[in-house]
Design a protein around this nucleic acid. Structure first.
Lengths: 233, 233
DNA sequence: GAGAATTTGTTCGTATGTATC
DNA sequence: TGATACATACGAACAAATTCT
């Protein structure tokens, strides 16, 4: 029977985001906590993620754990094989190349679409992200620097107001952050390209798409080179 | 009632999707068959997808149905809201714009990376897809034309040998095919740009990246314009 | 607005497939 | 290679939330 309930529902993404933690579905909570554990190094790359073990650790049953693992598989942090289980991804130089080439394509599209619709609020958000990065740099908190760096890039992508673009980009964000953690734990001095970030904000303020594209492409290329080098050795 | 498991066991060779159902998990089977139903118009855009109804239709429990719905949510064909259920997406002109702008960015990256590593096998696969499209055009099988068109573009993306690029692109393929079905059911004469496809193959054969990028960008822009126009009215 | 019905989220038991000794 | 242990895939029932009458 056709009911009236099929009508357009509210935007699910806006519902899921800022909500008290105990109201979130367990599957999302599992994904969130497991993500933190992986990015924090608790589960090293290649580790097996056993459903029953995670279920008892998080105090739920295996159902929500399956949901959470599926979500993290979507973001690329976890890889699942039929009947064999789930594992934390292991990153090679080829993976770094894939992530950065794709991020470049996506973020260049993002600035192109973002600048024409940017407001002062957009600029403010970018500046805040840079400030947060400076603060974390000052206290030598490498994980926080990486997170702030990604927040900066996320702000650019969000400014494009392009749902599918953001979704694709999010499929690379966690993997990028994992790379950053791995790099900064060995070579903490290689973090940040503060100059690039400021230049990019200036290009946004001037609504100069060409310059923003050039700066961002250069910025990502520098990062990519550093990363590829690290993961090749 | 024909169950997925039962059907696979009874007659593994001739299933509706010509895929070996007995070797894949039920969740994937549900996703595959539900995708065909949606793209075939059985479930119209906006339709509610009730887990219990799908479970009885496919002869499984709700577990695999949930897995299948999650998979189709990943490809963008289905949208789920916490505690409210899953729905077939509804496409607006804004969605068309998003899909095509993102597809353009992804497929331009694809040709750029594919041409340097292309072999004669790559060219063959592209030609086969064009031939399949011609055959379907000759017999006025609109859904098959759309499927063959997407197979052509998929061949380009696969040729880039870039896992994450393919994954991102697949998040748009089903949505594009849904658009094509909706368009061709109303304006069947608007399908195909055969000239563009041949030109693109020529550019591949000549290893001319610049020309391939130009042709593909033009091709996608023409398609986008047609689509946006249709979905605006 | 309250209660009933429907539907989703969750839990747990069972069976099958995988890995190991 | 064969048997055993273990983890995942699936099914069925319970509980909570949303929608409809």
């Amino acid at each position: 029977m056709v009911t009236l309930r099929g009508m357009a529902a509210a935007d699910p993404t806006s519902v899921a985001d800022n909500r008290p933690l105990d109201r979130i579905e367990l599957g999302d909570a599992v994904a969130s906590r497991l993500r933190t554990l992986i990015l924090g190094g608790e589960f090293a790359p290649g580790s097996r993620l056993v459903e029953t073990e995670l279920a008892s650790r998080f105090g739920t049953s295996r159902g929500p754990v399956r949901d959470g693992l599926a979500e993290l598989e979507r973001t690329g942090l976890v890889r699942s094989v039929n009947r064999r289980g789930s594992f934390v991804i292991e990153l090679t130089a080829a993976d770094v190349d894939e992530v950065y080439s794709l991020r470049t394509a996506l973020e260049l599209l993002a600035v192109t679409r973002a600048i024409p619709v940017a407001t002062t609020a957009t600029i403010d958000r970018l500046s805040e992200a840079v400030n947060a990065m400076d603060v974390s740099l000052a206290v030598n908190d490498a994980p926080a620097v990486g997170a702030a760096d990604m927040a900066f890039h996320r702000a650019i992508v969000e400014a494009a107001q392009h749902r599918r673009l953001l979704q694709s980009w999010e499929g690379l964000a966690d993997q990028t952050e994992l790379m950053m953690q791995e790099l900064s734990s060995v070579r903490p001095e290689l973090q940040s390209n503060h100059g690039h970030h400021s230049e990019l904000i200036a290009a946004f303020a001037a609504r100069d798409v060409d310059r923003a594209v050039a700066v961002l492409a250069d910025h990502l290329d520098v990062s990519r080179t550093t990363m590829v080098e690290h993961f090749s050795s």
